[in-house]
Each structure stands twice: as structure tokens, then as C-alpha cells.
Design a protein around this nucleic acid. Structure first.
Lengths: 231, 231
DNA sequence: GTAAGCTTAGGACATATGTCCTTTCGGGAA
DNA sequence: TTCCCGAAAGGACATATGTCCTAAGCTTAC
């Protein structure tokens, strides 16, 4: 990840929610960073001193254990905030972050953020709301994982991507390009995902055409998902 | 849960963190509620219009599915906040809350809270920090659940209660009185917990004396827990 | 075009965990 | 004391899910 000197933060801020958030005279302190697919953006334990706004691209946030097991916490697309927990707690980075695609961050040094916070209450309110939303989402996902088997989570996921019509930006957040990523997102092994997909195909709920998944019976799928929408 | 008219919020606020949080002239709007063991305090879907500070007692926060399955989200002891997510999002109650023991809440109407927030920035900062902490804790718990089998979670739990010596208030938060509650907290069935306890006993890590658990080999336990502390 | 390397697909087997039931046991109610 | 009940303990079996492995079908680089 490296700073793009040429880029002006203005071009990313204009027309977004961030316009209200950053008083104009603070904008010159905002840096623009670019990253490339596969970059390791942050690692557990790093010290952070900037807050990052994901403006472009897709990133993945994950935990890994000392034994090397890996758990995808979530995939994120804009708009997303990285480093808010660390800003609040003053602690080191909790989860590792990796770039799934190329992308762009805006960065605000914690020191400047503290100043903005003081003279512009909207900022802290924004941070609070964002955090509340993250927490809510996390709670929801945890419940799903603990309460339902993979089959239900998968059904719910498939539903969510099939309803793009009514879709807020939110649904975008977890579209995945291939099955392995999907397995990670749902929180299971690729093998098991495959097994469940096979069952669904056997029951004519979906059809697998050369790698991609087509929904054949939306109604059955809804029943399976038990009214859950994956987020 | 009912308001205790006689009680003054002052007596609960004095000497705590809340002293800085509530400007003196706002304190008269703070209500005091008492509840009794077993009371259902909040249910999913309720509309909330107050923020609650748990001052005394122990409560349990849980989700239940349409099918009746139940998932303990966590147990809480003071200090704890209920309703902050709802305040931020303006949404209905997410998880149900039940009293595990008798206890006391302080309550601040959202309307007043909004006013305090405006003239006293420490309040929103407090909410933000609290939320960040909740989020962090939730993340940690999720990772534990997803990454480790019950055995490790149990070991970690036992460690945490054995280290009361170094204990912040935090460790208190999840002491449970009986095995069924412990099973719920760890997120497994009573049967399975029992099974795992038996294994540990067989390996001389613990000893089960008439219902209670004694730790016999702290070192082995630590190894099992792999350095995790069940926060 | 060919080899290398993913991604997809699935067999075989092991393990973690859940469900249902039965038995035992200690403490409070009658 | 006697009886009853909830908590504790564990057997038997079912199910969800993981691990390891093999093979086939594509891309992609050269």
C-alpha cells in the first residue's frame, strides 16, 4: 500500500457522505493510498495511527490462529471503515486485512481525527453509528453461525444475491467470485460447501452449470433459509 | 421491572465513572429501575426509548430462533450498557434480555440523551468507546467459537475463573453458577460439556467433586487453552 | 500446443457435537 | 423421615462438518 501523491482526496469525498463529515479546512490532511490485489494491508499486532476509509476495491478481514487456521471475519466493499476499534481503544491491530482486488483508501491520522472530533461532533457521532452497525452485523452473523447449519446459511446467502433488485449497497458486500471464497465467507470448508451444494442440486433447488450456480426454485430456497437474510 | 420511586440515581452514580458522564443538572431525569431474578427485561422487537445502565445484578442476553433454539449471547454484570445499539440505529430491540439475579438499572430517556450528547461531548465519546469494546469482545468470542472446539473454550473459561487474582472486573462477567448455564455460555449442549469435562477429568486436569470443578493441573489446562483467555 | 496451476467435484474416513433417554443423587417440601 | 424434583452423569445413536486425497476440466504462460 502506498500513498498516491498525485491524487486529491477531494475527488473521492465529493458526492459522498464524507462531504458532511470532513470540514473543508481539514481535507488537506487526508491522504490517499492505493493498494493492489493480494497486498497484505494490515497484520494483527501492527500499530495503527490512521483511520482508513475504503473508497474502492474489496478487502478481506480475517483472524488466524497460532496453529495456522484461518477465519474470515468478513469481506468489505466501500463504504467501510478500518481502524475505528483501534482508534477507540488505542490498541494494536486486531484482525489482519488483505486486498482481494485493487483499491483505494483515504487515511486520516488519529491526531487530526481527535481534533476534528473536538470541533465537529458529527464525526464522533459518525464513528459511533458505524461501530453500532458493525456490532449489529457481527451479532447477526454470529447468531447465524451458531444457530444454523451450513445449508441454511448457504440458502440465505444465495437468496441475498438473488434479490439484488431490492438491493441496497449492502448486498454487494459479500458477493464472492468463487466457491472457495464463498466457503470462507460462510465459515465452512470448501469440501463441505460442495457437499451441501450437491444436495441442493439433487433437490432441484439450484443447478450447477460449469462452475456457476443458477437458482431454479426460489421458493424452496426461501423455505430453507427460514426467513434469514444473510445480513 | 419497575421504577423505584424512592431511590435516587445519585446514590448509584457517586463514585463511579458515571459521575463525569452526567452533568449534574441532568441527573434528575435519570430513573432507577429494579428487577427480580427471572424477569424478562426486554424482548426482541420491543421498542426502546431509554438507555439502560446495569448497576447491580446479572443479566443474560440471548437470541432465539423461530424454531425455539436458543443462543446465549453473553452474560453481563455491571458496568454494562443496554440499548446503545438501538439508540444509534433507532431500531427495535435485537436480543432478548433476562434477569439472572435481582438487580438495578439506571435509565436515561433517549430524548434526554440526545440533549446531553449535544452539550456534553464526553457522552457520545463514552458511547463510542463502549460500543467499540463490545464489538471487540464479540469479535473475540466469535473467533473462539469458530476456530476452537469446545474443549479449548472450556479450558480457556476455566483458566479465566482461576485467575481472579489478576482479575479485573471483566473476569467476573461470565462466572456461572451451574453447568447448564456454563454450557449455554460456552455455546454447546449440556451433554457435550459433560463429555468434555469427563475427558479432562480422565486426564487429571480437573477433578469433579460433587458438582463443583477443581483444577488439578493448571499447566496442562493452559496448554489446552492455547493461550486464549475467554474474556 | 504443452505443461503448470487453479478451480471444481467428490470418495473415504475421522471427529465434534447434538438429541434422546435412563439413572443416580442430594436437598428441600410435606 | 420419606418423597419428589431438579441437577448431574453418562449410554446409544444420529448428524454436521472437517481432513486428506484423487481426478477431471479450464486457463494461462511460454
Amino acid at each position: 500500500m502506498k500513498e498516491i501523491q498525485a491524487a486529491k482526496s477531494e475527488q473521492y469525498i465529493c458526492g459522498t457522505e464524507l462531504e458532511d463529515l470532513f470540514p473543508v479546512h481539514f481535507r488537506k490532511y487526508i491522504k490517499v493510498y492505493g493498494f493492489e490485489k493480494g497486498d497484505v494491508l494490515f497484520s494483527t499486532g501492527d500499530e495503527l495511527d490512521e483511520l482508513y476509509f475504503l473508497m474502492e476495491g474489496k478487502i478481506k478481514i480475517f483472524t488466524h490462529t497460532p496453529e495456522g487456521k484461518l477465519l474470515i471475519n468478513r469481506f468489505k466493499r466501500p463504504p467501510a471503515l478500518i481502524g475505528d476499534v483501534e482508534y477507540s481503544r488505542g490498541s494494536a491491530v486486531i484482525n489482519s486485512v488483505e486486498a482481494v482486488t485493487d483499491g483505494v483508501f483515504l487515511a486520516v491520522p488519529f491526531a487530526d481525527l481527535a481534533r476534528i472530533e473536538r470541533e465537529h461532533p458529527a464525526m464522533i457521532r459518525f464513528l459511533f453509528d458505524t461501530m453500532a452497525h458493525k456490532f449489529y452485523t457481527e451479532l447477526h452473523a454470529t447468531s447465524m453461525h451458531m444457530l444454523y447449519p451450513v445449508e441454511v446459511r448457504l440458502a440465505s446467502y444465495l437468496l441475498s444475491i438473488s434479490e439484488v433488485a431490492e438491493g441496497t449497497m449492502f448486498h454487494e458486500e459479500m458477493r464472492t467470485s468463487n466457491l472457495m471464497e464463498l466457503a470462507e465467507w460462510i465459515g465452512t470448508s470448501y469440501r463441505h460447501l460442495n457437499r451441501v451444494l450437491k444436495n441442493m442440486a439433487a433437490e432441484d433447488i439450484i443447478e450447477r452449470v460449469n462452475g456457476s450456480i443458477k437458482i431454479k426454485n426460489l421458493k424452496k430456497l426461501s423455505t430453507l433459509a427460514k426467513g434469514n437474510i444473510y445480513e
